[in-house]
């Protein structure tokens, strides 16, 4: 790559970063903007366009760890399924919240929920990724070692989880990783609450009803889907680590 190519790439990335930064800086304004759109399809398309810079920023943050595990930028066998999982997960969260609201008798629209989730929570995903960095590096190292020992998928996953668990419960990692994970967890809970309150205003329903349906969606409908998508992304990771 020549210097001018590199400069062009950097300019492109700067634009992407600014787009993401603006989305993080004014989440409510972006949310209102998307909610004002006419059709559901338009809302979902615009949400995805807003979320892609967040995904790219997250990917760039992950690069050093991925490179250490032998996954390069050109490794489309990892990046494409990873992108697909992330985008499906985003839609699934929107869908479970939407059905949670529907089950509670609130006439929600999928486009509204995906738009609100993307602008109020989804755009912050790279920030949530940062605190998991040390554990992710450790997990990747453990997975690489498991593959070097020619372990098949499930034993390799068990070995990776054991290594991560041992580091958190018995090693110094617990002192760093656990408070960081708690901060991320509390921040996501607060953002989810904020979104539920926004939805209650949007559909003119009591706050308690919106919050209850969100709890139902996230803690009842979502876990099996999250498990399946986690299994898929773990398999992709297993096949890509060298």
């Amino acid at each position: 790559m020549s210097l001018s190519d590199f400069a062009t790439e950097l300019r492109g990335f700067t634009n992407l970063f600014l787009e993401w930064f603006d989305a993080c800086r004014r989440p409510v304004a972006h949310c209102d903007e998307l909610l004002a759109l006419a059709s559901d399809r338009e809302k979902i398309v615009k949400s995805m366009q807003l979320w892609i810079p967040a995904f790219v920023v997250g990917l760039i943050l992950q690069f050093p760890v991925l490179k250490n595990a032998g996954i390069e930028l050109e490794e489309m066998g990892y990046h494409l399924p990873n992108f697909l999982t992330a985008i499906v997960l985003l839609m699934l969260i929107g869908a479970v919240l939407h059905y949670g609201l529907r089950i509670h008798g609130i006439a929600s629209r999928l486009g509204d929920i995906v738009a609100a989730y993307t602008t109020l929570i989804g755009v912050y995903s790279p920030l949530f990724l940062l605190p998991t960095y040390p554990l992710m590096a450790l997990d990747m190292g453990a997975l690489k070692e498991a593959k070097a020992h020619s372990l098949s998928f499930l034993p390799a996953m068990v070995s990776m989880m054991k290594a991560g668990n041992a580091a958190v419960t018995q090693g110094y990692m617990g002192l760093v990783e656990v408070p960081l994970a708690i901060i991320v967890w509390v921040a996501s809970l607060l953002l989810l609450t904020f979104m539920a309150r926004k939805v209650s205003v949007l559909y003119s329903v009591p706050k308690s009803k919106a919050l209850s349906s969100f709890a139902f969606g996230i803690f009842v409908l979502f876990p099996p889907l999250y498990f399946l998508s986690g299994l898929f992304s773990s398999f992709v990771l297993y096949t890509s680590v060298k």
Partner: peptide, 21 residues
């Protein structure tokens, strides 16, 4: 106000887990 609602959400999470899972 947001923190109080989030605490309630945590209680509701426990409730749904006990009732369904």
């Amino acid at each position: 106000d947001l923190c109080i609602d989030a605490s309630g959400l945590l209680v509701a999470a426990g409730a749904w887990t006990l009732m369904i899972w």
